[in-house]
Deep mutational scan, measured.
Amino acid sequence: MDVFMKGLSKAKEGVVAAAEKTKQGVAEAAGKTKEGVLYVGSKTKEGVVHGVATVAEKTKEQVTNVGGAVVTGVTAVAQKTVEGAGSIAAATGFVKKDQLGKNEEGAPQEGILEDMPVDPDNEAYEMPSEEGYQDYEPEA
Results as ranks from 00 to 15, higher is better:
Met1Arg: 01
Asp2Cys: 10
Val3Arg: 14
Val3His: 06
Lys6Thr: 13
Lys6Val: 02
Gly7Lys: 02
Leu8Phe: 13
Leu8Met: 02
Ser9Asp: 12
Ser9Met: 15
Ser9Trp: 09
Ala11Met: 15
Ala11Asn: 01
Lys12Tyr: 12
Lys12Trp: 03
Glu13Met: 12
Val15Ile: 11
Val15Asn: 00
Val16Lys: 15
Ala17Pro: 01
Ala17Arg: 11
Ala19Leu: 10
Glu20Ala: 01
Glu20Ser: 01
Glu20Phe: 09
Lys21Asn: 09
Lys21Trp: 09
Gln24His: 12
Val26His: 00
Glu28Trp: 05
Glu28Tyr: 12
Glu28Pro: 01
Ala30Leu: 14
Ala30Gly: 02
Ala30Cys: 08
Gly31Ala: 03
Lys32Phe: 03
Lys32Thr: 10
Thr33Arg: 01
Lys34Leu: 02
Glu35Ala: 15
Glu35Lys: 06
Gly36Ser: 10
Val37His: 00
Tyr39Met: 12
Val40Trp: 03
Ser42Glu: 07
Lys43Thr: 06
Thr44Asn: 02
Lys45Ser: 01
Lys45Asn: 08
Gly47Glu: 10
Val48Thr: 08
Val48Ile: 09
Val49Lys: 14
Val49Gln: 05
Val49Leu: 14
Gly51Val: 14
Gly51Trp: 10
Gly51Arg: 14
Val52Ile: 03
Thr54Ser: 14
Val55Gly: 06
Val55Gln: 00
Lys58Met: 11
Lys58Asn: 09
Lys60Glu: 03
Glu61Gly: 14
Gln62Phe: 11
Gln62Lys: 15
Thr64Pro: 03
Thr64Gln: 11
Thr64Ala: 04
Asn65Pro: 05
Val66Leu: 02
Gly67Lys: 11
Gly67Cys: 14
Val70Thr: 03
Thr72Met: 07
Thr72Pro: 06
Thr72Cys: 08
Gly73Gln: 12
Val74Ser: 00
Val74Glu: 00
Ala76Asn: 10
Ala76Gln: 05
Ala76Val: 10
Ala78His: 13
Gln79His: 11
Lys80Ile: 06
Ala85Leu: 03
Ala85Asp: 04
Gly86Cys: 09
Gly86Glu: 10
Ser87Gly: 12
Ile88Ser: 02
Ala90Phe: 15
Thr92Ile: 10
Gly93Gln: 06
Gly93Val: 03
Phe94Leu: 04
Phe94Met: 10
Val95Met: 09
Lys96Pro: 05
Lys96Ile: 03
Lys97Ser: 00
Lys97Phe: 07
Lys97Ala: 01
Gln99Val: 12
Gln99Ala: 05
Gly101Leu: 06
Gly101Trp: 13
Lys102Leu: 02
Asn103Cys: 08
Glu104Asn: 14
Glu105Cys: 13
Ala107Leu: 05
Ala107Cys: 07
Gln109Asp: 06
Gln109Leu: 12
Glu110Gln: 04
Leu113Trp: 07
Leu113His: 07
Leu113Ala: 10
Leu113Thr: 08
Asp115Ala: 03
Met116Lys: 08
Pro117Tyr: 13
Asp119Leu: 04
Asp119Ile: 15
Pro120His: 12
Asn122Met: 15
Asn122Val: 06
Glu123Tyr: 07
Glu123Met: 02
Glu123Gly: 15
Tyr125Arg: 07
Glu126Leu: 12
Met127Tyr: 07
Pro128His: 02
Glu130Arg: 13
Glu130Asn: 08
Glu131Ser: 03
Gly132Met: 04
Gly132Glu: 03
Tyr133Leu: 03
Gln134Ile: 10
Gln134Leu: 01
Asp135Gln: 07
Tyr136Asp: 02
Pro138His: 12
Pro138Leu: 05
